[in-house]
Design a protein around this nucleic acid. Structure first.
Lengths: 188, 188
DNA sequence: GTCTATAATTTGATAGAC
DNA sequence: GTCTATCAAATTATAGAC
């Protein structure tokens, strides 16, 4: 069963935003990759903002569906956090792209207003998930301390993707990720 | 003595890149803010890539000139690292913008080739400066361990700027920065 | 150094046929 | 749902006058 057109459009838009940013993706380029015309892309997503929102929604949903899977599958916090870091690692080593929301967050000032809540929501849900792992696995720290460590891990991973991509050196990511992961585990 | 035109152009271009990214800054917008025409901007910087390189060069030079000042002025590593973090803090709380190279690094895929070495150089010189502070102030760790901690601090700060900007919450930056700073100080 | 004028291209978006 | 055709605007960049 082939992917429906709307799905293909989101696929390509996500890839373009994560590589090049919101301004680089054009309806014509997407259309050409799907094998249709740009007016047909507008049929599925009337405006560029609509498409970006759809991309961000699907990205977030898929990301947190995977995290929920992990929560259900694994007990040990060490494994959970390791798998969490793996999701950012995959962005670099498999997709060779940034986190969608890392890119969009950087471009906040030139984002259509409707896209911003999706990006904010992604970051907040990351912090909520990390905090939840800490709390439900017996952290003795205060909620504020846990939240601080969660923020630090998320920021390190977002920054690590940018630095590793810029330096064209995957080892940079590994250095940052392993130390940040270690630091986060001090919540326990 | 009023600023020469070329300097004003770089001022405005830097501000635009740090807020909106490489693709948002147009020669016409810059010209309008300087009070000249876009063709006059091309007189000073033939291409957009030329201008971006000039912006990155000046940004880096000014950044590391300030770091060298700090190295000459202060002895205590605690003060030095605190001042280092302050430079990123200032980007958020004073400029209300990202680090120039954080933004350009995210946009790596769509950057003119001539700009990339400047962005790479910025990150590398950050790591060199941090490592140098650690080594000259008696860290017992291996070069690799020091480099790892330096990378982690830089990534956290770059990520913190993006997250704090996105969430519109300066406190997020403070949380991340203070913990990352603490972690880096374990080199000593 | 700055201007007017303009070229060549790309962009997001719409109207209307099929 | 997809197409052709088109629009209005914006973009980087250049030629040539002053």
């Amino acid at each position: 069963m082939p992917k429906v057109t709307a799905e293909q459009i989101i696929d390509i838009a996500e890839s373009m935003i994560r590589s090049n940013g919101y301004h680089s993706f054009s309806f014509r380029e997407i259309a050409s990759q799907v094998g249709i015309k740009s007016s047909s892309v507008h049929y599925h997503f009337p405006t560029k903002a609509d498409l970006a929102v759809a991309v961000a929604k699907r990205y977030s949903d898929s990301f947190f569906a995977r995290l929920d899977e992990l929560s259900a599958q694994f007990e040990e916090p060490e494994v959970l956090i390791n798998e969490y870091v793996n999701m950012f690692r995959a962005a670099l080593t498999i997709d060779r792209k940034l986190c969608l929301c890392g890119m969009l967050g950087a471009e906040k000032a030139v984002l259509p207003p409707s896209v911003l809540p999706e990006v904010k929501g992604f970051f907040i849900r990351n912090l909520v998930w990390l905090s939840h792992v800490a709390v439900t696995h017996g952290s003795n720290l205060s909620e504020d301390d846990i939240h601080q460590r969660a923020s630090c891990l998320l920021a390190s991973l977002e920054g690590a993707l940018i630095i590793a991509q810029t330096l064209e050196d995957d080892e940079s990511f590994e250095n940052i990720a392993s130390l940040s992961q270690q630091d986060f585990m001090t919540v326990f």
